[in-house]
Amino acid sequence: MINEYWTKKQNIQLQNDCKKYNIPLMVKKEIERVIEILDSNYGMERSKKDYGGCVYLLVSNEEKEHSKILEKYFLDEEDYEFKDILIENEEEIWISETYITSTEYSIIIIYKINK
């Protein structure tokens, strides 16, 4: 399943999704940080398709969903600008990848890998 966030106006949705899918606090804070940057640079009133970009949180079928997003934006897996490990423990790894899709639009894909 893919969850999408692009503005602070979706804070309740983000809170509910994080509870529902047991998303770690550090992952939630990273999504909030990115949304804060997007809102401060592009405004809170924008839609997902407007300038700025969005965050995709993958909570199931990570590999399949990841491929769908990349295909939507005509990207390859190696096209990311930044790749960070948000959390790594004995059970899982949470990863954040930033893709620049145009001069004024980027996407961040956050997903986990089970060990």
Rank of each mutant, 00 (worst) to 15 (best):
L14H: 00
I69V: 08
N16H: 14
K9E: 04
G52H: 02
E88D: 13
D84V: 03
C18F: 07
I100E: 10
I12D: 07
I35M: 09
W6P: 01
E97I: 05
M44Q: 10
E92I: 12
T98C: 14
V59T: 14
E71Y: 08
E65M: 09
D39S: 03
Q13W: 09
E104A: 11
Y42D: 04
L38N: 09
G53M: 13
L38H: 05
I109H: 01
D17P: 03
N89Y: 04
C18E: 03
T7S: 13
C54N: 09
F82T: 13
E91K: 14
E77G: 02
L86M: 03
K64A: 07
E88A: 07
V55N: 04
Y42L: 06
I107F: 02
M26S: 11
M1N: 01
K83W: 00
K19Y: 12
E90I: 12
K64M: 05
I31C: 08
S102W: 08
S96A: 15
T98Q: 11
S102M: 03
T98D: 12
E65D: 11
N61T: 00
K72C: 08
Q13K: 15
I69Q: 01
I100G: 03
L70N: 03
I108P: 00
S106V: 00
T7V: 10
I87V: 15
M44W: 05
E77P: 01
E30W: 00
G43P: 06
L75Q: 15
I93L: 12
L14D: 03
E81I: 07
L14A: 01
M44L: 09
C54G: 04
E4P: 00
K29C: 11
V27L: 06
K48L: 13
Q10L: 10
N22L: 04
K8I: 05
V27M: 10
K19V: 03
V59I: 06
G43T: 06
I109K: 04
E36L: 14
M44G: 07
K68N: 10
E90R: 13
V34Y: 14
W94Y: 14
Y105D: 02
I100F: 04
K83F: 00
K8D: 07
L70H: 10
I93H: 07
N41F: 09
E78F: 10
V34C: 09
D76C: 05
R46K: 14
E91D: 15
E97K: 15
S106N: 07
E45V: 02
K8N: 15
S96P: 09
F82I: 14
I100R: 12
L86G: 04
Y42N: 15
E36M: 07
N41P: 01
E30T: 08
L14I: 02
K72G: 04
Y5D: 05
E62F: 02
T7C: 12
E97T: 13
L75C: 13
K72E: 15
E91S: 14
E45F: 13
R46D: 06
H66N: 11
